[in-house]
Design a protein around this nucleic acid. Structure first.
Lengths: 387, 387
DNA sequence: CTGTTAGCGCGTTCAT
DNA sequence: ATGAACGCGCTAACAG
């Protein structure tokens, strides 16, 4: 395979160019280009000579850089994340979305360029060539980056990203999903519930959820899910998870179960955990421990369950726990988690299709938001209160 | 922010180019280029005028495509995987490697272009611009792709990939690690052991491990780990996992524990499970069930444990189980797995450094392979046989 | 210090 | 059916 001196002007190390092939085949560059791209009309003999020449020289095809410049297109779609690479992919829900995205882009379609940490360093986004960008799981920290993308005239698709001018939005009805889940708990008779939220913004800190922090949440999915819960449990105390992970859920769950969530919701009086209607004072009776915890992701929920079990609490007998996402728990837990299942893969596919559409007609205005819905999965981690 | 008619020749939709900025600042293209790239010498007043012009026009910086062509460099490093995207990143060990790779490339460094499924479609690799490629977890199915990369004169770094001419290899001492683990089991008195292998090649099928299949294994880590085991248990029966996942491990574990591994290792006689020295016939006594299972990844091991527990077997009392990788079990299991810990992150970083080195001096020959070592973690999933 | 010139490698007109 | 010429947007040489 490695015949070195076959070619005509076989320079020691240079890459074979189209012009080399053309020269060897005795045709012009343009003819060779037409033949190799399959499109152009050419006599059978010419075609064959070009193909032979290419094979003999080991032509690797056109240089993607040059082709990209010429065609104004690089065949690359950027996946922009606020988080670091590891954090972004650790949650199966994001992987599922990426899988869907790859699918939606199709087989011969563009490849994915991963641009993590865009919030910290917006400039990363202007140094690489790509034809479209997909924002996944971003908060408003991404807005600077967005401005750059707009200047580059790059179509932008937002997967649960902040709505902004010209961004094709793929959304999830987080509000309704979270509300339904909270409703489910209330129907089961729970009044003292705790919340474990997703990270509020790009600041990955954990701690008690204060009204101020809650109001300042920047990530759409975080604040939407919180809004949904608030429609049912306006005063429930909460804890902010530092990430959507089991470990973070464990920490947060431990905090809530040990009563540390208290400071978050009350000002100065002794009331610690809210109930939904009677006011925070009525339930000051036997226990201040929540009877249910709404975790804003499945991974977090698993961590919460672990924290509960470690404290000798049985789920769901002593504590009901709900998740969010409906990830296929590849053996992550023995529990059949009550959760809202979201069509992550379909969301990714929709994003892929949106990319292709934007590429096909760059002049077209951003399409209307696409809204995906969640479905309640009644698992075995929720039960009637005080059972 | 969106003053539209400020610029001179503000064409309706065109992207602002360097020449627009230069014209507005009243300087030549090259001067503007020098100023914007920070490098060139320029008078303070000129510099300021150029910067002002760029700001006023909303110049987004040089077009990465054009810059890439001109400089012969795109600022992109490809991560090439044999598997589909989801399969490749589901295993935390690969994520850790990616994390390390991103680190090793440094902050202002190249971005990562994900190219999954390269074995199925080698051409994917020739359509996108990148300056170097990292092969992660590939078998020989990648060789066609490799040939293309060679033709493109792209430096290639192999992370546990097949050794080949010009590929900078980052290796792991899988053989020694697997041997040590097997040795550990033998020292504990285990004779009847079963093996659950990683997938043998790009064919993601599961089933009993036959000598023919074993000999035909194409993925380096798979066959090396198998080789290591064979130095201690030459005849142990095995089952091929369809992936490095808990689910696949569960299936394989179930198969071995139910005695289905049998056909794999024997020809026609009744002997089912091998012991290491006395030959397959001696142990036909009470039970043919293995007393220990060597799983070739931690995820697989967790699946095996689950299968065992479901059958009423206690780990490690009734069955010892070992893993491989030493992933941080973010709450994946309650067990403290006995396993070989590999420095996945460091491997990724080494790959990153190798990329930078290759980029710094493209003429340099491929460096010698870098070998990383595993360390035995004696967890709580192995115990003395027959205890 | 600044402007002029010349490509990077390719695809695509427009002639022939 | 084929070849010649041009330019995508930028930067690296050289002149001035």
């Amino acid at each position: 395979m490695s015949e070195t001196a076959t070619g005509g002007a076989s320079g020691r190390d240079a890459r074979i160019r189209l012009s080399d092939v053309a020269a060897r085949a005795g045709v012009s560059n343009s003819t060779a280009s037409l033949v190799l791209n399959g499109s152009g009309p050419a006599s059978a003999s010419t075609r064959q000579r070009v193909l032979d020449a290419a094979a003999e020289l080991g032509y690797a095809g056109p240089d993607p850089r040059a082709r990209g410049l010429r065609q104004g297109r690089s065949g690359i779609v950027a996946v922009v994340t606020e988080d670091a690479l590891g954090d972004a992919f650790r949650d199966p829900i994001n992987l599922a979305q990426l899988d869907g995205l790859a699918d939606g882009l199709g087989d011969g379609g563009p490849s994915l360029l991963i641009i993590p940490g865009a919030a910290d360093d917006p400039a990363r986004v202007s140094s690489s060539p790509f034809d479209a960008a997909v924002l996944v799981g971003c908060g408003v920290g991404i807005l600077d980056t967005l401005e750059l993308l707009r200047r580059r005239r790059v179509p932008v698709i937002g997967l649960e990203a902040p709505h902004a001018d010209g961004v094709a939005a793929i959304d999830l009805d987080n509000v309704e999903g979270a509300r339904a889940l909270a409703e489910h708990l209330r129907e089961l008779g729970h009044h003292r519930v705790g919340i474990v939220t997703l990270p509020l913004g790009s600041r990955r800190t954990s701690g008690p959820l204060t009204p101020e922090l809650e109001a300042a949440a920047t990530a759409p999915s975080t604040s939407e899910r919180l809004d949904g819960v608030r429609q049912v449990f306006p005063d429930a105390p909460g804890w902010i998870a530092s990430a959507s992970s089991i470990a973070a859920g464990y920490e947060a769950g431990a905090a809530l179960l040990d009563g540390r969530g208290a400071e978050g919701v009350t000002d100065a009086d002794g009331a610690t955990l809210a109930d939904d209607a009677t006011g925070a004072d009525g339930a000051k009776a036997a226990s201040t421990r929540p009877t249910a915890i709404l975790a804003q992701s499945d991974l977090i929920a698993i961590g919460v369950i672990r924290a509960a079990e470690e404290r000798g609490l049985r789920v769901p007998d002593d504590l009901s726990v709900t998740g969010f996402d409906g990830i296929r728990v590849d053996g992550l837990t023995d529990h059949d988690l009550t959760t809202m299942v979201q069509p992550a893969r379909a969301k990714g596919e929709a994003a892929g299709r949106a990319v292709l559409a934007a590429l096909a007609d760059p002049e077209a205005p951003a399409p209307d938001p696409v809204l995906f819905r969640t479905t309640l999965h009644r698992g075995a981690t929720t039960a009637r209160a005080g059972a």
